[in-house]
């Protein structure tokens, strides 16, 4: 890494973390200057979050919102040149910080949906998310969509069942246990929650693909399911 690249990484780390030690060679006057950059960085991003989440700010209260926004800017430093993405994931930050008041996170999720284009954009996101799942189901020989007729499939709670030589060789009880075993393994790994199939449905997994889910998160989940399936299959 070049000297400049190292300096820039150090500088950005110092912006994000007040506790970080001052970079080598810096003195008190540097710390004073750095504090101004830190305030500018946070202030700019907090203002952007205020613009995106005006009702959430009212519900949470100004001071609590400012703390949550500052926390978000530090834990989710933006990666894009556009400010449009600064608010991404803020409802999850609210869910973590306002545990006693789940309305805050829910309202934030709604305001985020509004800011990215409202209902049409959310439907588009759900469609794109469902496509990630259905493409994977098509490409994976040991699963199939629980609903045979594509016209009747949902784009939100996408369900799939297992098939193939190994699965068919199992007893009915053993077959019924497969999705639950996969689910428990991934829950234990902290990979996903609440995606075991419906109790009244055939043994299956049910992946939520609604518009509030990030496509990248779905893409991350799928290799984990493949891993867990192999673990279950190989005992």
């Amino acid at each position: 890494m070049s000297g400049l690249a190292r300096r820039q990484q150090e500088f950005l780390a110092a912006l994000l973390d007040e506790e970080a030690p001052l970079p080598a060679g810096w003195q008190v006057r540097h710390a004073r200057g750095l504090a101004i950059y830190r305030n500018n960085y946070r202030g700019g991003l907090i203002d952007t979050l205020r613009d995106t989440y005006p009702r959430t700010e009212v519900l949470a209260g100004e001071a609590a919102f400012a703390r949550a926004a500052a926390h978000h800017c530090i834990t989710h430093p933006p990666s894009s040149w556009t400010l449009d993405q600064v608010g991404a994931g803020f409802s999850a930050t609210c869910a973590e910080l306002f545990r006693d008041d789940p309305d805050v996170a829910e309202l934030a999720a709604l305001e985020w949906a509004k800011s990215i284009g409202g209902l049409p954009a959310m439907i588009e996101r759900a469609n794109a998310n469902a496509k990630v799942l259905t493409d994977w189901i098509e490409a994976t020989p040991y699963v199939r969509n629980m609903v045979d007729d594509p016209a009747k499939r949902t784009n939100t709670g996408v369900c799939f069942v297992f098939q193939g030589e190994w699965f068919d060789s199992l007893s009915e009880d053993e077959q019924a246990a497969v999705p639950g075993k996969i689910y428990k393994m991934l829950e234990a790994e902290g990979v996903g929650y609440d995606f075991n199939g419906y109790r009244d449905a055939p043994p299956s997994l049910r992946i939520w693909c609604g518009g509030t889910v990030e496509q990248e998160d779905l893409k991350r989940l799928l290799p984990w399911i493949e891993w867990a399936y192999e673990q279950v299959k190989n005992g």
Binding site: S2, G3, L4, A5, R7, Q8, Q9, F11, L12, L15, Y37, N40, Y41, G44, L45, T48, P77, P78, S79, S80, W81, L83, V86
Partner: peptide, 25 residues
Amino acid sequence: CWTRTSVHNSHDLLPLPLTTEALDV
């Protein structure tokens, strides 16, 4: 100025060291 590293964007105009290396970049 600079505003980003390889992964993060500060959305702030950050200062450059005034070195020949920075000038070349």
